[in-house]
């Protein structure tokens, strides 16, 4: 009994970690008023670069950093298009969902003898006390840090102001473009880290399905968590818990087809939304390009 509870907790934390990175990525950019539907693509690219660098350098930490930076490189496209050129944020974000996985597999085949998976890494990211992945702790720390930055520092005040009322921020001499760009870049960094956390912490190699939908679930978690770091964190945990339950009770332990158990997290999310959350309020200027001097 105790051991199965432990295993549920462990699995929950393991599944939630990449989601949390992805969700924090969404929280940062959407609080600054930029929707990032490309998290999935960025995570895939981060997952590949993380695994590849982790394999070549034998250093998972270097892998994690490279994965994050890969996320930054990719997200710069989105930042430039949507913030500087006021492009449609859905379209330019969506582009990343094609470019990210495409580039990952393309480079993977070039570097790993035309295979779509990287060679397994020898050194995974360490576990704390041999129990939980270090990335679990990192995800928690990032959430707390993000909460602190958003609600207790001047940068947070500025990020939220350009997401709520960019014109007001502009009249106070805040550079809306700069704040938004920075937030989107941080968003890419976190999403890249989330992808790398998956391949360096959980599965130890990149496969085409290493990231399959986590970026989109993260996007949903942002909305579910009402655009707050703590809320999105909770949403990710809840979701991962449902997944862990499905895994633990699947495999013939109870007499329900495993496919239906696998649906549990998704059904649960919808039910919870119907019962408890309801209409959620996005930052007022979320998704809207800021045009100066618009008449």
């Amino acid at each position: 009994m105790l051991s199965s509870i432990m295993s549920i907790i462990n699995t929950t934390l393991m599944y939630s970690t990449p989601l949390i990175f992805g969700a924090m990525s969404g929280v940062v950019s959407e609080n600054a008023g930029v929707v990032n539907v490309g998290i999935e693509g960025i995570m895939t690219f981060g997952a590949f670069v993380g695994a590849a660098v982790g394999f070549y350098t034998q250093n998972p930490w270097l892998g994690l950093l490279s994965g994050s930076l890969a996320g930054v490189i990719l997200v710069v496209l989105h930042a430039v298009a949507s913030v500087n050129f006021k492009a449609d944020q859905t379209i330019s974000g969506m582009a990343l969902n094609f470019i990210g996985p495409g580039l990952s597999l393309f480079l993977c085949r070039l570097l790993f003898k035309n295979k779509t998976t990287t060679t397994r890494i020898a050194n995974k990211l360490p576990k704390i006390f041999g129990l939980v992945d270090v990335t679990v702790l990192l995800a928690l720390l990032i959430t707390i840090l993000l909460w602190f930055v958003l609600y207790r520092t001047k940068w947070g005040l500025r990020i939220r102001s350009v997401g709520e009322h960019p014109a007001a921020a502009d009249t106070l001499g805040i550079n809306v473009t700069k704040v938004r760009c920075t937030s989107v870049i941080v968003s890419g960094f976190l999403a890249g880290a989330g992808g790398a956390a998956m391949t360096l912490g959980v599965v130890s190699q990149f496969t085409p399905t290493a990231i399959s939908g986590q970026g989109f679930i993260a996007l949903a978690a942002v909305i579910f968590g009402k655009w707050k770091p703590q809320g999105a964190y909770g949403a990710c945990l809840l979701f991962a818990l449902a997944q862990a339950l499905a895994v633990t009770f699947g495999g013939g332990r109870i007499d329900i087809p495993s496919e239906f158990l696998s649906m549990l997290p998704y059904v649960l999310t919808i039910v919870v939304l119907i019962l408890f959350v309801g209409r959620s309020m996005a930052p007022s200027a979320n998704g809207k390009p800021y045009k100066k001097g618009k008449r």
């Binding site: 050129f85 470019i99 580039l103």
Partner: peptide, 24 residues
């Protein structure tokens, strides 16, 4: 040619990206 077929995804992503930029 042995070119990874994923180049197609990259092409499509780039096209989409330029569509986003096309307001310019």
């Amino acid at each position: 040619l042995g070119i990874p077929s994923e180049i197609i995804s990259i092409t499509m992503g780039s096209v989409l990206f330029f569509v986003a930029l096309s307001g310019v």
